Computed example of a mutant assay.
Amino acid sequence: MKWAGLDRYGIVVMTGECPMIDDKTIFPSGLHKVIIDPPDVVVHSRWFHDGQSFEMLPDRPSEHHVLDRETRSWVLDLETCAKAARNKRNALLKETDWVMLPDVLLSSDVLAEYRTYRMALRDLPQQSGFPENISWPVHPEGK
């Protein structure tokens, strides 16, 4: 039997053929809903099931976009986007923590560049475009 598994937004996340065990169909766990005998759809974030039928959606702009079921359009989840930006910022700060150790020998000019870079990273959430449009500071070593 062919099937399509949907997530909580109605997006097709799995398709397949189900095995029968003792006349019972076994589906993978973690699916919100399963549609039996769907049309030939593929596992892709562009297939949507509205409860009645499948339709093709435009490409998902980023992993931070979620589907608005009513308008059938992708909307930016600002909370997820902000969390991802903060995680990236924290990783970049961690990469340069060594510079702040008291026994690191750097010239005062280089140390000032790192301090400026780290302050710019900490100030990212105050940027006017945060979290959608972020102007990332340039690493002192050009990374």
Rank of each mutant, 00 (worst) to 15 (best):
93 L>Q: 01
20 M>H: 00
119 M>F: 03
43 V>N: 11
23 D>H: 00
132 E>N: 09
138 V>N: 08
130 F>M: 02
137 P>G: 07
73 S>G: 12
113 E>S: 10
55 E>G: 06
142 G>K: 10
47 W>E: 02
111 L>A: 07
109 D>N: 12
99 V>E: 10
116 T>K: 06
74 W>L: 12
103 D>Q: 07
47 W>S: 03
39 P>S: 08
56 M>H: 05
135 S>N: 11
41 V>Y: 09
76 L>W: 09
26 I>W: 10
23 D>M: 04
45 S>W: 05
17 E>P: 06
81 C>D: 15
83 K>H: 14
18 C>Q: 05
24 K>E: 14
108 S>G: 02
58 P>V: 04
128 S>P: 09
36 I>T: 13
67 L>Y: 06
80 T>Y: 06
19 P>W: 09
100 M>Y: 01
69 R>Q: 15
36 I>C: 04
22 D>L: 11
78 L>Q: 13
16 G>D: 15
112 A>Q: 01
58 P>I: 05
114 Y>D: 06
139 H>G: 13
38 P>C: 08
143 K>T: 07
5 G>Y: 12
45 S>K: 12
122 R>T: 03
86 R>H: 07
122 R>V: 00
29 S>H: 10
100 M>G: 00
128 S>D: 15
36 I>H: 07
38 P>I: 08
77 D>W: 14
136 W>Q: 03
105 L>S: 03
47 W>R: 09
36 I>K: 06
116 T>I: 01
132 E>A: 15
70 E>Q: 04
112 A>P: 04
37 D>F: 05
6 L>P: 07
86 R>G: 02
135 S>W: 02
88 K>I: 01
15 T>H: 13
66 V>I: 15
130 F>I: 00
54 F>N: 13
129 G>Y: 03
42 V>S: 15
79 E>Y: 08
97 D>P: 08
47 W>H: 14
23 D>K: 01
71 T>Q: 11
24 K>A: 11
75 V>A: 10
88 K>Q: 12
32 H>G: 15
65 H>G: 02
87 N>W: 06
68 D>C: 13
15 T>C: 13
113 E>V: 00
122 R>H: 01
6 L>S: 02
62 S>H: 08
59 D>R: 09
84 A>S: 14
53 S>E: 05
76 L>A: 10
33 K>D: 11
76 L>Y: 04
106 L>S: 03
129 G>F: 03
92 L>N: 03
118 R>I: 01
54 F>R: 14
140 P>M: 14
7 D>V: 06
13 V>W: 05
31 L>F: 11
